[in-house]
């Protein structure tokens, strides 16, 4: 049985420590969502797990082996990573992009085997991009483009796929389209998916496990209906909210408390406004 763990993992950029001696275990066969406020280190954690970022200390262990001790291509056969908003070179067609996904399976002489061809076609069909195969990636819409990149990662044929904010910059319809695709890959193909998600409601809906990252550590880790609570959201995102069952799925649905919607605003937010108006900061702004 495959396992993906971190042990004492410490990640940093220059001197700023982002993740501090973290022990984490990713469950195989599930969808895991990394959530947290901006700059909390969730993308850094994903980069650390995927070998895009070398740890300051500690290990990422895949099947009992440190990923930094594996040959690069061997790791790429087992673990794929789609970074945030990649840009394809001008004029590169979807088919060619997806074909690049076979790189870890190729050698100097064996550059395009029958198996490469079969798997690339399958990847395009799965990601539903076959009909744009001959179109340059840079002429596609945002959602089509993201699906083309996902198809490339699928052609890599790894059991584990990591994605950094796969829905960023997409319209709502495209966001759901991409998340549905990942859901199908998990349930129908048994892919283990680990992704950074901005939208907590998407995480609750699509993830089996949610990992909330805060200040270089894990603030909550578990099934959405168990760990996504009002107090957790306050702690991790610094915002008050109500949580109700999603009318469609029963998963937690986060309703943030804000000042919008005047007529229905709760007594609590009124009192917050009052406090603000009578605070010294407001007096300074008036002056």
């Amino acid at each position: 049985m495959t396992q993906l763990n971190t042990r004492d993992l410490t990640l940093s950029y220059d001197d700023a420590c982002i993740i501090d001696s973290l022990d984490l275990s990713i469950r195989i066969g599930e969808i895991t969502a990394l959530v947290g406020a901006n700059g909390c280190g969730k993308s850094t954690l994903l980069r650390g797990i995927s070998r895009l970022l070398k740890p300051r200390a500690g290990h990422v262990i895949l099947d009992g082996q440190d990923i930094w001790k594996l040959p690069a291509k061997t790791l790429a056969q087992q673990l794929g990573i789609l970074p945030q908003s990649p840009v394809a070179p001008e004029g590169l067609t979807v088919h060619e992009l997806v074909a690049q996904g076979r790189y870890p399976h190729q050698g100097w002489l064996q550059q395009w085997s029958a198996e490469d061809e079969r798997i690339a076609h399958e990847a395009m069909a799965l990601a539903n991009v076959s009909e744009y195969a001959d179109r340059p990636v840079d002429t596609l819409s945002g959602g089509q483009r993201q699906r083309a990149w996902i198809a490339m990662t699928l052609a890599q044929d790894s059991a584990i796929i990591l994605l950094d904010e796969p829905t960023t910059f997409l319209d709502l319809a495209y966001q759901i389209e991409v998340l549905d695709l990942l859901h199908d890959l998990n349930t129908q193909r048994g892919k283990t998916i680990v992704m950074v998600l901005h939208d907590l409601n998407h995480a609750c809906r699509y993830a089996d496990t949610v990992i909330a990252v805060k200040d270089g550590g894990v603030a909550a880790h578990g099934a959405p209906d168990q760990v996504v609570t009002e107090s957790m959201v306050r702690e991790v995102f610094g915002i008050d909210c109500r949580i109700i069952p999603d009318p469609l799925t029963g998963t937690p649905l986060i309703v943030p408390c804000g000042r919008g919607g005047k007529r229905l605003a709760s007594a609590q937010s009124h009192s917050q406004i009052d406090t603000f108006v009578h605070s010294p900061v407001f007096a300074l702004m008036e002056a």
Binding site: S50, R51, L52, P71, A72, K73, T74, L75, A76, Q77, G80, I81, L82, P83, P86, V87, A88, P89, L92, L97, Q100, G101, Y103, P104, Q106, W108, Q111, W149, M152, T153, Q156
Partner: peptide, 22 residues
């Protein structure tokens, strides 16, 4: 012989690393 490496680099450093290129 190394032309394929250029194709990788053209995708960007991070996608290339993800595909197992050094």
């Amino acid at each position: 012989v190394l032309a394929r490496g250029l194709n990788m680099l053209n995708l960007g450093d991070e996608p290339a690393k993800g595909l197992g290129m050094r």
